[in-house]
Nucleic acid binder design. Structure first.
Length: 566
RNA sequence: GGGCUCGUGGCUUAGCUUGGAUAAAGCACCGGCCUUCUAAGCCGGGGAUCGCGGGUUCGAAUCCCGCCGAGUCCGCCA
């Protein structure tokens, strides 16, 4: 509802500026602690019209007319250089009405977006670095869906790298431990195979032959690869599922080679791009010059085989053809790749993807390294945090049975983990501290979930006592400050989603969720719901019901489950 | 060495794109609040020359330049 209010303010303010004959570029509207929305346009006009901004603000107010009816604005005043707008009772009433009736306030049908995230190499389990990628991507996908886009999530499967060649080679002589989780079993073979190869580097020739055969589409080799990659992916998917993350599509890079798409990209780049041939004798590598990037990009090896970035170009061209916007969640190490992709796609006249680049997660002991054993697997972290969450639940709720306690612990633990990862802006480097991550008590997610549980608890009691509880209510009875503040906060979910989706900033949702929970807790403390007279109780129950809806909505956008009790 | 990113109370962060109303939260710390809907909560308090130095501006955490510190990339790897 807040978005509608903002639109009306924009409309009236523009009209006032026109009436007063001011030329303006921006309305400079923003949320403010002094008003429901505030404009700083007078500052800007002060420069061009060489008058004090206070005078201009006053002048604008004099030309501003708030309609007598069908408006969401109660008042507009000049506060010095600022123009402040305030919502009216109708705004508050309509906000609750909309939420209760489940009417979406955001625009629909804004086009299709393909968002790629996680895309971990299928040579072992996910670690906390992948988790950051997966959670940022998943929340963003949820945000964009809410904002009205048709969203498809992709996991790009790097099945052509040397690592996978090593695993396939290893699997031919070392058996998978079938008692272990699939991705762990694959990692074991990968590590063991690496050791064998280190001892005898001649084995590398075998690996390379496998890779050549795979690229050429040798059927027996393809079957071996598929078995290994699928095995690993099944383990990865199981981990992601525990975090409420799923992908709509797994795109294998090898498909783009064997399907001919990579060859097409190379041919087209030869025609449209600035290409150099490098090498002599049997063949030559293809170097592509990219504007603004010093080093040429090698798009084909001397032996004619393909390279990672070229295959990625083919994948991106394919994606582009299937949607209106392409979004990639990449780690900081892929920043150069993202620039190369963008430039390459420009040459191919394909729309350029939007990138969300996130900084690394490191450990207090240094950067993550699977080979050095310096990493924390996603599964281990999930397991530990659920255990810690269980201890907290057990401490507080001796009355619940075991399965209930475990269910709550799972929701709280996963929620805490997701919230922790998403609350930080992607471009901030994270030093992961295990003890800190497990300190459930001081996490953001349980705070939000707790507010939801409180709301549910009130509604449950009301339902038991009075059944059809919310008939014939009058929300104009809600005029305590904490009630008004809560309603205003409720009205801003759509606004928060709009901000987060247009700027691709998932952490803004985490911020909104916290503020909403805070508003609810203030209301909870100030305003008794069950122990008050019937008419006021009905109105407050409507408010609680709406708060419950929006709290569970915002938790859903964050991919966090909303427990009914805690 | 060059490119990009980050540097905000003791700790973790928001705000920076688009400069403006006392720099905003959480954690930690100190002090209060459970005979009324779950205290994973609420109230109060102390604590920040917004990395350092310059510049632009009526006004800078925000824009520009330099420096320092951290991260990351600079393979016919992925």
């Amino acid at each position: 509802m807040f978005l509608e209010f903002k639109k009306e303010v924009e409309h009236l303010l523009k009209k006032a500026l026109d009436n007063a004959s001011y030329e303006y570029k921006e309305l400079d509207l923003e949320e403010s602690e002094h008003a429901d929305i505030s404009s700083r346009v007078a500052f800007f006009l002060a420069r061009t019209y060489k008058k004090p901004p206070e005078i201009i603000a006053e002048d604008i107010i004099n030309h501003l007319e708030i309609p007598a009816k069908n408006t969401l604005i109660s008042n507009a005043v000049a506060a010095g250089p600022y123009i402040n707008f305030y919502v009216n009772d109708s705004f508050l009433h309509k906000t609750l009405q909309r939420i209760k009736e489940g009417i979406e306030t955001v625009e629909r049908k804004r086009g299709k977006i393909i968002i790629e995230h996680t895309s971990a190499n299928p040579d072992g389990p996910l670690h906390i670095g992948h988790l950051r990628n997966a959670i940022i991507g998943d929340v963003l996908a949820r945000v964009l869906k809410r904002a009205g886009f048709d969203v498809e999530t992709h996991f790009y499967v790097n099945d052509m790298g040397r690592q996978i060649g090593v695993v396939v080679w290893g699997a031919e002589r070392i058996a998978f431990d079938e008692t272990k989780k699939a991705d762990l079993a694959v990692a074991d073979v990968y590590i063991a195979a690496n050791r064998l190869i280190e001892e005898n580097t001649e084995f590398l020739n075998d690996v390379e032959e496998l890779m050549r055969k795979y690229e050429a589409g040798d059927e027996a080799v393809v079957r071996k690869y598929e078995a290994v990659v699928k095995k690993c992916l099944s383990g990865i998917q199981a981990s992601l599922q525990r975090l409420n993350i799923r992908h709509d599509l797994f795109a294998w890079e090898s498909e783009f080679v064997r399907g001919g798409a990579v060859e097409e990209v190379i041919e087209e780049l030869k025609q449209k791009g600035d290409i150099k041939f490098d090498g002599s004798g049997s063949g030559s590598a293809l170097l592509l010059h990219l504007e603004g990037i010093e080093k040429e990009l090698v798009i084909q090896r001397t032996d004619g085989t393909s390279l990672y970035t070229t295959r990625d170009l083919a994948y991106h061209r394919w994606k582009s053809g299937r949607c209106d916007r392409v979004i990639d969640i990449f780690g900081k190490d892929h920043e150069l790749v993202s620039q190369q992709l963008a430039k390459g796609l420009q040459i191919l006249e394909v729309k350029v993807p939007e990138f969300v680049i996130f900084a690394f997660v490191s450990l207090p002991t240094g950067s993550l390294s699977t080979r050095a054993g310096r990493y924390i697997s996603a599964d281990k972290l999930i397991e530990k945090i659920e255990t810690r969450a269980y201890e907290e639940v057990d401490k507080r709720r001796k009355d619940l049975d075991e399965s209930k306690k475990h269910e709550i612990a799972r929701k709280v633990g996963i929620g805490a983990l997701r919230h922790d990862m998403v609350k930080v802006s992607p471009d901030k480097h994270i030093v992961f501290d295990f003890d800190d991550a497990l300190d459930i008590e001081k996490k953001g997610a349980p705070f939000i979930q707790y507010s939801h549980a409180r709301a549910c608890s009130i509604l449950k009691v009301a339902e038991e006592k009075w059944q059809s509880l919310i008939q014939g209510y009058d929300t104009s009875l809600l005029h305590e400050e904490s009630e008004i503040e809560l309603i205003k906060k409720l009205s801003k979910l759509g606004y928060a989603i709009e901000e987060a989706s247009s700027e691709l900033k998932s952490h803004l949702i985490a911020k909104y969720a916290r503020e909403l929970a805070e508003s609810f807790n203030l209301f909870y403390k100030d305003c008794p719901v069950l122990n008050t007279d019937a008419t006021l109780r009905k109105a407050r129950l409507v408010l609680v019901e709406c708060a419950k809806i929006v709290l569970s909505d915002v938790l859903d956008v964050l991919g966090i489950e909303a427990p009914k009790e805690m």
